[in-house]
């Protein structure tokens, strides 16, 4: 499957499925992001899976969630061991969890942080791979009014690796948010702005 990586046409993987692993803490929206992205991809005709890894799920507890996106039906039912893309909603998890587990030399990290990609590369102790960062906390605070990093990170992900076309993505997300926040159009606006800003502001090495 060929997708655009940060404005360069590239083959991301030999097989036909993009595998994304999300790391967050309960309440930050890792599970919602994994499922929403899968739903959005399914609306443009992709085959998908979106699922969380369940432990004692509570606010603050580490949460891992997964998304698979492909052009053919996905039959495998197992956790993602070798993700192509790792999204980190909370960088304090870098100490708590092995967020880089199974990531190859060509793997992509998208991290919610104020630090630069170079600093995060050091923190992650990475040899290969590519690191992208975006200050999702601040973006969401300014656009949505509270710290909820998942929406901006989804925007950043689409910029880094266009798993589905950006315009389709925004359109579908708008529909989803309008359904979810029927009586609060400012929340819908805020979330869309958050995604657009992160799309613009995400930076890589």
């Amino acid at each position: 499957m060929t997708i655009v990586i940060f404005e360069r046409e590239e083959q991301i993987k030999m097989s036909d499925v993009i595998e994304i692993r999300w790391h967050g803490r309960g309440g930050q929206g890792a599970k919602t992001a994994a499922i929403l992205l899968a739903e959005a991809a399914s609306r443009v005709g992709k085959y998908i899976q979106g699922f969380p890894e369940y432990g004692p799920e509570r606010m603050g507890a580490p949460v891992t969630a997964y998304t698979r996106i492909g052009d053919k039906p996905i039959r495998i039912h197992a956790n993602i061991l070798e993700p192509d893309i790792v999204v980190i909603l909370d960088p304090t998890l870098i100490r708590a969890t092995d967020v880089a587990s199974g990531v190859s030399e060509n793997g992509i990290f998208i991290i919610n942080t104020i630090e630069s990609p170079a600093v995060m590369r050091k923190k992650l102790n990475l040899k290969g791979g590519r690191v992208f960062t975006v200050d999702a906390n601040n973006i969401s605070l300014e656009t949505i009014g509270r710290v909820i990093p998942n929406t901006p990170l989804m925007g950043a992900l689409i910029k880094v690796a266009e798993v589905i076309p950006y315009d389709d993505f925004l359109k579908i997300m708008k529909e989803e948010f309008e359904k979810k926040f029927k009586s609060r159009p400012e929340v819908v606006e805020g979330n869309i702005k958050a995604m657009e800003r992160a799309y613009q502001e995400v930076k890589g090495e």
Binding site: D90, T92, V147, I148
Partner: peptide
């Protein structure tokens, strides 16, 4: 009323 109930930060950074 001897206990205040304040917001915790959204992430452990906060």
């Amino acid at each position: 009323d001897a206990i205040d109930f304040i917001d915790e930060g959204e992430t452990s950074e906060g």
